[in-house]
């Protein structure tokens, strides 16, 4: 059913539309001289807020231990199949040999990543984080595939409150 809306009766000057145009011109003129809101991107960098979901990266704990144990849950949960983990055993001569497992390679194809953050959510070791990086570019497709070493380098250190593996090592040393 059509609803008939009662409109306000307009005065003569309103009906000429001219005062409205003039007030419009005044508003646009005010805005013309108002400060500009554009961020001049490459010269000025935006402030990245907390919880920003940029490119996923791998991180080390405060001891410098590579946190990923290559459980491949991120690979499983990744909806765009951007992650490819090649699991392997940690070599016996490593100080972290007791952790047993770590990635031989960890590839994230940034041309496939959709920045959903599910990998971060799925990670049981808190080894993968959505970083603050948003400008990712390369000259080739292969250049957009990030490998383990790059990912740790970009990710850096994220302090770990629990230090699970440190505790296990101490316990085993007893």
């Amino acid at each position: 059913m059509a609803i008939i809306v009662e409109r306000k009766r307009l005065s003569f000057w309103e009906r000429t539309y001219l005062p409205q145009i003039l007030s419009g011109l005044y508003i646009t003129l005010k805005n013309f001289f108002a400060p500009k809101v554009t961020l001049e991107y490459p010269d000025q960098q935006p402030v990245i807020p907390q919880g920003y979901r940029g490119a996923p990266v791998l991180v080390c704990d405060s001891d410098g231990r590579h946190k990923c144990v290559s459980c491949q849950l991120c690979e499983f949960v990744c909806p765009s199949k951007a992650i490819k983990v090649t699991p392997s055993a940690i070599p016996e001569d490593s100080q972290y040999a007791f952790i047993e497992k770590g990635p031989a390679d960890f590839q994230i194809d940034m041309s496939r990543c959709i920045y959903c953050g599910l990998c971060q959510e799925a990670c049981p070791e808190q080894a993968i984080f959505m970083g603050s990086e948003f400008s990712i570019n390369a000259y080739t497709r292969a250049g957009l595939v990030r490998h383990k070493d790059d990912l740790y380098k970009i990710g850096g250190v994220v302090p770990d409150k629990i230090m699970k593996w440190q505790k296990i090592k101490e316990r085993e040393a007893k």
Binding site: Q72, F76, K101
Partner: peptide, 9 residues
């Protein structure tokens, strides 16, 4: 088969 691939894949 150790650490080669997770079974669900």
């Amino acid at each position: 088969f150790r650490f080669k691939m997770r079974t669900w894949f």
